[in-house]
């Protein structure tokens, strides 16, 4: 202990120690495999894009708002149709207005939640399916370039599905009056974000 108290080198060695920390690279005990890298890239693709996040949460919220069986039908419909868009994107089939479609999905579905729209189940499914093509295409265009395209596909389907589940979980609040206000407000925020995405403000 006395050595530490009287050590004249301590102030000089400390910056050296800090510099050494900055100079070092991270020590990774486990290297990621190709499949792992592809999965993580795909998984993060919908989660790191705010336009995707807003629309996916809105799908879950709307499903919860509509109640059974829509609460499950919409999250079933979305990935199925999204896969077709993804396949088209991977195959290089062009679809016009992808970014506009994604932004419009946040606006339209957000508005549906805000206005507590309760169309027939088939209409709700068609609306969600229509927008799913744009989201799938956006993810799919990057699929062939991924380290492992199949792992990438699995990643973005699961990532998208989990965002739906987040929306559904939040949508469960509609069981109370205050919760319904909160959910509808969230729909309004998502719709406003959709306007932002459409105009390029966000």
């Amino acid at each position: 202990m006395a050595i530490h108290e009287e050590d004249p080198l301590k102030p000089r060695l400390f910056p050296l120690f800090v510099a050494a920390l900055f100079a070092s690279t991270p020590a990774l005990a486990h290297s990621t495999s190709d499949a792992g890298g592809g999965f993580v890239t795909g998984f993060l693709h919908p989660i790191l894009g705010w336009d995707h996040v807003a629309a996916m949460i809105a799908v879950g919220l709307w499903g919860a708002f509509l109640g059974k069986p829509a609460v499950w039908l919409l999250p079933v419909t979305f990935p199925l149709v999204m896969a077709l868009g993804g396949a088209a994107g991977a195959a290089g089939v062009p679809i016009p207005g992808i970014e506009t479609g994604i932004a419009a999905s946040a606006l339209v579905i957000g508005l549906a939640v805000l206005l507590a729209a309760r169309p027939p189940l088939a209409v709700a499914a068609i609306i969600v399916a229509f927008f799913a093509i744009f989201h799938g295409h956006a993810h799919g265009t990057e699929m062939p370039a991924a380290i492992s395209p199949l792992a990438y596909a699995a990643g973005f389907v699961i990532g998208t599905g989990l965002l739906h589940l987040c929306g559904i979980a939040f949508g469960v609040l509609t069981r109370s009056k205050a919760g319904t206000v909160a959910v509808r407000s969230a729909g309004g925020v998502i719709a406003a974000a959709g306007v932002g995405f459409l105009t390029g403000a966000l």
Binding site: T77, P79, M82, A83
Partner: peptide, 12 residues
């Protein structure tokens, strides 16, 4: 539906 979606893209 997730399995089908991944399968469709894998088949493509």
């Amino acid at each position: 539906s997730w399995v089908v979606a991944i399968g469709v893209m894998a088949a493509a």
